[in-house]
Amino acid sequence: MAEVIAIPSSFGKATTRSAAERHESRTGWLLSMPAIVLLFMFILVPVAAVILMSFTDYELGYTGFKWVGFDNYADLVTNRTFRRSLWNTTVYTAIVAPVSIFMALGLAMLIESEGIGRSFFRTAYFLPVASLLVAMATVWQYLFHPTIGPVNALLRLADIEGPNWLGASSYVLYGLSIIGVWQSVGFNLVLFLAGLTAIPRELYAAAHVDGARSAFDRFRLVTWPMLGPTTLFVTTISVINAVKVFETVKTLTEGGPNKASEVLLFTIYQEGFVYLRVGYASAMTVVFLIILVILMFLQYRIQDRQVHYT
């Protein structure tokens, strides 16, 4: 009896619900349509196009192109500029990312444990993040000037003859790295500060009671593990941003002297938009994208395994 009644009523429900569902689904489509269209137009299709173009010898200004298979990639392997550029980007990243991460962590812990001047220090270190990098790079160029620059003038006071920071091929990467660290510490610092404030005070109390005598013990028992997610995120962002270094190179060195500061994005820019060899530059872009994908993949893997506690 109950079943007999139940069937028609559930039928009725099913049809009305599906009408409501259809309406909701249509609204959903309508609301997200502009985003979907633009996403295809400006991200997905261009990425596909870059991959396709990387298999051609297309050059801007010429009509027509040939499919060349993996020729561009084979060429990249032996291209000295590209190899130099990959190496320089690696060196730059290997300096800037760790230094800016640990400097930011150290400063964040100092600021956190210091009562006074908290917001002043945060502002001071964060200011470079909010400043126009191209402009500040110009200031650094003056600071680093071999003869009239204040940096070398200071070194001269200590009787040290400073190098030509941005003009000597053995120093230019270090000069750029200093600017890179200066520019990115503040961002990491702010994230670490937020991470530190989020650690429950009771954990430190528990660590004291449990016998963690020294500050180092408490750092290992509480601070470092609790900052895990923040550190992972800061690391990923720092590495990706370092790999994307471009502004300082374009403004200050144009890849020179003698390709000593040739970095990945600058090489792509030169090939693609100055020499207009689009096919070849596309192959470089694909390499760049693969590097980003690998970095993100690593982040997800570590995140899943290590730093999530719940």
């Binding site: 996403l39 400006f42 991200i43 997905l44 299709v45 261009p46 990425v47 196009a49 870059v50 173009m53 801007l60 994307k244 471009f246 994005l265 792509i268 693609g272 938009f273 689009v278 530059a281 596309s282 872009t285 760049f288 994208l289 980003l292 994908v293 993100m296």
Partner: peptide, 17 residues
């Protein structure tokens, strides 16, 4: 999630063309 990976540097060539 895919889009988050792609910076303007990667799409600049085809867009420019």
């Amino acid at each position: 999630m895919l889009g988050l990976l792609v910076p303007i540097h990667a799409t600049a060539l085809p867009l420019y063309v």
